[in-house]
Design a protein around this nucleic acid. Structure first.
Length: 514
RNA sequence: GGGCCACUAGCUCAUCAGGUAGAGCAUCUCCCUUUUAAGGAGGUUGUGCCAGGUUCGAGUCCUGGGUGGCCUACCA
């Protein structure tokens, strides 16, 4: 086994044998006997009906005594001597197969009774009927073996632990209908978002994951290396700077749904790779983007919620009403009773500390405002709310506010207390963009490892002329969390990042001394 | 990153006065021709996360490490 290559042969004998559990041995033995009589891994199976179709068409199928052919996975076996009830699961549900010794004959009945296990795949052929306990069933006349499972499925009437559900998603999907439904829903939501953007006239594009410079957000990147070019590359933390190049090139409405990668902590709401939606429209400002965002979310709430309302934990949000729109500084003024723009940094720091905000060295005015906002305002933004017109320093890619000095034209959309979307009237003046990058560089040199590096190639593109543009980014995973009502990002990621179960202690010869 | 808790059979969990481990499901044998957490009788299954230590004796106590969960802080 490949993953054991660099393990030393320890005393006590760790070999391939140790991994062969007796349950697997038993199944392997059955497999070789079964293999003498049937094809163990055939190539295809002609299905006539899915489980849902059979349930929907039960009356007609039963009346006509029509033969159905139904493939799926065996989820249980309930024998009563010379009959056998076998629930078979397909993607949509479960249908029970009924095997009778009298119908199948001694040999075939022995196959299903003795050699075919829970977890195996089979196709059954027969007619529909109702048992006397009123369970829709297939009276099996013939069956086809489809694939052998040599490992057992988990136990059937307790939930798997969250850890095992995430690490072994194939088992979670096999065992838990709600999990299958949740991930199918995720897919339907994303498909619907694509339809929405198509209807709005946006072009779906793909931009590089591997970038010579990262940008478009404030975060630490993953770093990798291109061998042939012998150069460092970064996994993207955002799509923004490439999508803007497309706007500069004359594609007027573009969007991308793609993975971004951020080398930061993991918890219930953060995974190192996550799915981001970004869209840009030429000639729009952030008001246009706000309207677009509101249209999209109302549509999703109508299609995937209850009459345009969503329940999240014990919160209920109504997307039918126009979304609230509040200015960042106004929201803070409401909470603190004073105009924070009028305060100097010292007074602001005292105020923030008074509200329990931890002030670290090197935090600028705008950062303090942002912290204060997170502390005082965000948790209360349950109904969909656009927070507009943020302080400038935190938004190096946003255009200055057309009326108020020190602010930018930006909005964040909050729902159920957390940020779902972020948008700007995009900065398109290359001189101003260069100054903002210089400011970021200063922050970086001061030790801020999340500050954005200067991207000369992007500046050069902008110098070719970028039209007025509105842009918006939206965290898909968080949106899905809202729509499926879960507080754990693992529930909406098929394969969330997990640490390896076992550390190979032989990686570091001197090991253990840290 | 900080705090608290957990890790025992393939799965879900008990054993908590330290004396070399149990249940249900799964699996095996037998009985049962409409069961559905089928039922009945009997059997198999464990380096008790890893490494040290205390002890006559450790799953149980101590130390270190690993993985996970919850709370807390930060980035989406």
């Amino acid at each position: 086994m490949a993953n054991q290559d660099n393990r030393p042969a320890e005393a006590g004998g760790t070999g391939d044998q140790e991994s062969v559990h007796h349950l697997i041995e038993t199944r392997l033995a059955k497999m070789s006997e079964l293999g003498e009589q049937v094809e163990l891994y055939p190539y295809a199976y002609d299905r006539t009906h899915t489980s849902t179709e059979m349930r929907a068409q039960e009356e007609a199928l039963t009346a006509a005594e029509q033969k159905v052919r139904f493939p799926g996975r065996i989820m249980a076996k309930r024998g009563t001597g010379k009959t056998l009830f076998v629930p078979i699961q397909d993607e949509w549900g479960m249908i029970q197969a009924y095997f009778r010794k009298d119908d199948l004959g001694e040999e075939k009945f022995r196959l299903i009774q003795k050699l075919i296990d829970i977890g195996d795949w089979i196709g059954v052929e027969g007619t529909l009927f109702r048992t006397r306990t009123d369970e829709l069933s297939i009276k099996v006349e013939n069956f086809t073996f489809l694939a052998k499972a040599i490992r057992p499925l988990p136990e059937k009437f307790h939930d798997m632990s969250l850890e095992n559900r995430s690490r072994q998603r194939h088992l979670d999907l096999a065992m838990n209908t709600d999990s299958r439904e949740r991930f199918k829903l995720r897919s339907e939501i994303i498909t619907d978002i694509r339809s929405f953007f198509a209807e709005e006239g946006f072009l779906e594009v793909e931009t590089p994951v591997l970038q010579p410079l990262y940008g478009g957000a404030t975060a630490r990147p993953f770093t990798t290396h291109h061998n042939a070019l012998d150069m460092t590359l970064y996994m993207r933390i955002a799509d923004e700077l490439y999508l803007k190049r497309l706007i500069i090139g004359g594609l007027e409405k573009v969007y991308e749904i793609a993975k971004d990668f951020r080398n930061e902590g993991m918890d219930r709401t953060h995974n190192p790779e996550f799915t981001m939606l970004e869209c840009y429209a030429a000639y729009w400002d952030y008001h246009g983007m706000m309207d677009l965002t509101e249209r999209m979310l109302r549509r999703l709430a109508l299609r995937f919620g209850q009459d345009g309302k969503l329940t999240y934990g014990d919160l209920e949000m109504d997307f039918n009403l126009p979304f609230a729109r509040v200015r960042f500084m106004d929201a803070l003024a409401d909470k603190t009773g004073q105009d924070l723009m009028a305060l100097d940094t010292d007074a602001l720091t005292r105020l923030a500390k008074g509200h329990g905000v931890v002030i670290k060295k090197g935090m600028g005015r705008d950062k303090i405002l942002d912290e204060l906002f997170s502390e005082l305002v965000e948790p209360e933004l349950v109904q969909p709310t656009f927070v507009m017109d943020h302080p400038k320093e935190l938004s190096p890619l946003a255009k200055a506010h057309r009326e108020t000095d020190g602010l930018v034209e930006r909005f964040e959309l909050f729902i159920a207390g957390f940020e779902v979307a972020n948008s700007f009237s995009e900065l398109n003046d290359p001189r101003e963009q260069r100054r903002r990058f210089e400011d970021q560089k200063t922050l970086m040199e001061a030790g801020d490892d999340e500050a954005q590096p200067i991207d000369e190639a992007f500046l050069e593109a902008m110098e070719q002329g970028m039209p007025p543009t509105g842009g918006m980014g939206l965290g898909i995973d968080r949106l899905i969390m809202l729509l499926v009502d879960t507080n754990n990002i693992r529930d909406v990621l098929l394969f969330p990042h997990t640490r390896p179960e076992r550390i190979d202690r032989n990686d570091h010869p001197e090991g253990g001394t840290t």
